[in-house]
Nucleic acid binder design. Structure first.
Lengths: 104, 104
DNA sequence: TCCATTTGTTACTTTAAGGTTACCACTTTT
DNA sequence: AAAAGTGGTAACCTTAAAGTAACAAATGGA
């Protein structure tokens, strides 16, 4: 129905809600290679602050895309990894990275 | 080199710079179906304001992803379409939309 | 003459996102 | 006792993004 367009469902919107923003794709891309602890992600995501990294990781965890595992070690060790749901994003993440390389 | 990680090149970053943000993927997705005039995009992208739509369209045009064609008609008619470069994003846009549907 | 339509623009305000700095908890090493 | 390493948190500030409302240009028609 053409009179209902401004309420039209756009399937891209929810995806954007989950992985949009300045950092999430980059964080997920880092984790897609293998699980990383907090400090490792921090070093691999250029110029993100610890505060923002913490926030983004919490959101990704709340959305079920990554898991957080705390080891009883010294000093502290917390490891983040993609969940199965997060893994399903890998082709998309790879595409995002690849598209940029292939461009003319 | 592992000591250079915070300057590491991340191929996803540039892609995010081009299509990141709240609206660009959605706008591109709308235009991926076919060329649209300003008002048509405005109606198909839920709740975007004209001001922001104008801004985003200008940025997308400046980045070479879309073209802007003004017709000498009454009342004004301006049509936006994907460029060839923008078309190269279509598989990615389709993937973004499809992923959301397939999720468990 | 004045209104309607379409595509904007301008000025101003509000909200969201991100950054900075300092600090804490826990444990081992010095 | 104090420092070092890891993974945070809290308070505060700045910047970027988005929204609102009013206005403009161009032109046909009532």
């Amino acid at each position: 129905m053409e009179n209902n367009l401004n309420h039209a469902y756009c399937p891209a919107i929810e995806t954007i809600a989950l992985i949009g923003g300045r950092w999430k794709v980059i964080i997920l891309h880092v984790l897609s290679k293998h699980a990383r602890r907090f400090g490792e992600i921090n070093v691999r995501v250029p110029s993100i602050s610890r505060k923002v990294l913490t926030e983004q990781l919490k959101e990704l965890e709340a959305d079920g895309l990554i898991s957080r595992k705390e080891y009883k070690e010294l000093p502290r060790k917390v490891e983040y990894a993609l969940t199965e749901y997060g893994e399903s994003l890998c082709p998309l993440l790879a595409y995002i990275a690849a598209w940029n390389k292939e461009k003319v």
